[in-house]
Structures are given as structure tokens and as C-alpha cells.
């Protein structure tokens, strides 16, 4: 499903909070469809704000933003019908069971009751949650919870998936599971925008990376390009050099 039109495109995205100054100070992004794109930066760099704006959860002051061919400012409903969001700011219900969560969100994605049940079964199976399906989510491990979160975001097979720090706080095994899922999604044509603080994660998953710091893009390219641009051996080094130079 790779077309010329980027799945995510922003130009000069700006947003400031009263009294706190600019959170985003002109972010330009162009993410080709069917790729995994990393948004890398330290805490407070503007990663989450960018994702929240693109997912219609936050407004922006100026600039342009398009997701899956829809204008984010003018066609929120159109964007919402084409995206999925998972990670630190979009949660599942801790009191309900995994199955109840999936069925509820499927219903809210406008599926009929029977369709919602079938989709829940399918996703529970795929994310290895069948055994835990009837238990309240608050009893899940971090990895299980994150898998459920990911399953919920995939209910409607989104064209564009936002993953906001999807592996923060996970043990290494759960992290690998999430990575596998992201790769398979990308292989099947979903565009993924992933924010992370982990350079290894960006290096392994993303075809391109945008480095942000203090609301600005400080570098953009493939992991290999970013490494060679500063003559560094790994992305950690590249990241430190680039953000210090900015």
C-alpha cells in the first residue's frame, strides 16, 4: 500500500501552552505509507504533543497536519476513523476484563455486537490473551496490558497507528513481543509512528527517524544516515552529538 502521498504529513506544526512557552516550534514530518517512523527525543521534546495533535486529542496553533489523507484540523472524524492509538496516553479499562474491553471498544468503533465479539476473539487469539480474557485487566502483567492496548488500537485495522512509547516500563521479553507485532503490522501495510526514548528500539524498528529536541526537528534520516552524519558508531552517540549541537 505504499503510495507517493505520505500517510502522515506536517508542516510548521506549532503549539504553545500559556505560561509554558512553545511545546512545538515548527515540526515538519513526512512519513511514507506502510513504513515505521520513529520520533526520537528526550522527555519534554514534544514527541507526545505531536502524537496527541495528530491523533486529534490536542489542538495546535499553526501549521498544517494531514493523516491518512485527511486534514487533522478540519476533519477530525475522518482522521479518527483511520487511526489507532496505543501507549502511555490511551488506556484500557482496568476493572473490565480483556474481552470486555475489546468488545466495548469494538462497539464504539461502530461494530455490531456479533461482529464485535468475533473481532475480540480474533484479537485475543492473536495477542496471546485467550487465557486471561475473562480476568480483570488490573491483574495483568505490564506486557499483557500493553498487548491488550495494542489489540484495542487495531480493532478497526487502522491505516495509521500511533504508538506512544509502547515499550516504556516493559521487561525485555515483552518488549520483543511488542516489536514483533509492530514489524508484522508494518509488513501488512500499516503506517506506524512510534515515539520512543530508546535508541535501540528506534534503530531496530524504524525505517526513518526524526529526532526532536525542545519542540524542533534536529535531524532526520535513516538510522544509518544519522549514525554516519556524525561519524558515530551507534545511535546513542549520534543522538547526544546532534542534540548537543542543536
Amino acid at each position: 500500500m505504499i503510495t507517493d502521498e505520505p500517510a502522515i504529513w506536517t508542516q510548521g506544526l506549532r503549539k504553545s501552552y500559556p505560561g509554558r512557552g512553545a511545546a512545538l516550534d515548527g515540526i515538519d514530518l513526512a512519513v511514507p505509507a506502510g513504513t515505521v517512523h520513529g520520533l526520537l527525543g528526550p522527555n519534554g521534546a514534544g514527541k507526545t504533543t505531536t502524537v496527541r495533535i495528530l491523533a486529534t486529542l490536542a489542538s495546535f496553533d499553526s501549521g498544517q497536519a494531514w493523516v491518512a489523507g485527511r486534514n487533522v484540523a478540519r476533519d477530525r472524524a475522518g482522521v479518527r476513523a483511520r487511526i489507532g492509538i496505543a501507549g502511555q496516553y490511551a488506556a484500557v479499562d482496568g476493572v473490565l476484563s480483556g474481552r470486555q474491553n475489546l468488545e466495548m471498544f469494538a462497539r464504539l468503533y461502530r461494530m455490531r455486537a456479533r461482529e464485535a465479539r468475533a473481532r475480540a476473539d480474533e484479537l485475543l487469539e492473536r495477542f496471546d490473551l485467550v487465557e486471561a480474557a475473562g480476568r480483570p485487566v488490573r491483574g495483568y502483567s505490564g506486557g499483557m496490558r500493553r498487548r491488550l492496548d495494542l489489540a484495542v488500537s487495531l480493532i478497526r485495522s487502522p491505516r495509521v497507528l500511533f504508538l506512544d512509547e509502547p515499550t516504556t516500563g516493559l521487561d525485555p521479553r515483552s518488549r520483543l513481543e511488542v516489536w514483533d507485532a509492530v514489524r508484522e503490522l508494518a509488513d501488512s501495510g500499516t503506517t506506524v509512528l512510534l515515539t520512543t526514548q530508546y535508541l535501540e528500539e528506534a534503530d531496530r524498528l524504524c525505517s526513518r527517524i526524526t529526532m526532536v529536541d525542545r519542540g524542533r526537528v534536529v535531524a532526520e534520516g535513516t538510522p544509518a544516515e544519522l549514525k554516519s552524519s556524525v561519524g558515530g558508531r551507534d545511535l546513542d552517540e549520534a543522538f547526544l552529538l546532534i542534540t548537543e549541537g542543536a
Binding site: I85, A90, V92, F105, L108, Y109, R110
Partner: peptide
């Protein structure tokens, strides 16, 4: 908890 945010991101 973020449940409200998730709902706001849905086409509901």
C-alpha cells in the same frame, strides 16, 4: 487513567 483520551480518539 487515559480511558477518556482513548474514547476521544474513537469515531464515536
Amino acid at each position: 487513567g487515559g480511558v477518556l483520551d482513548r474514547m476521544r480518539s474513537l469515531p464515536m
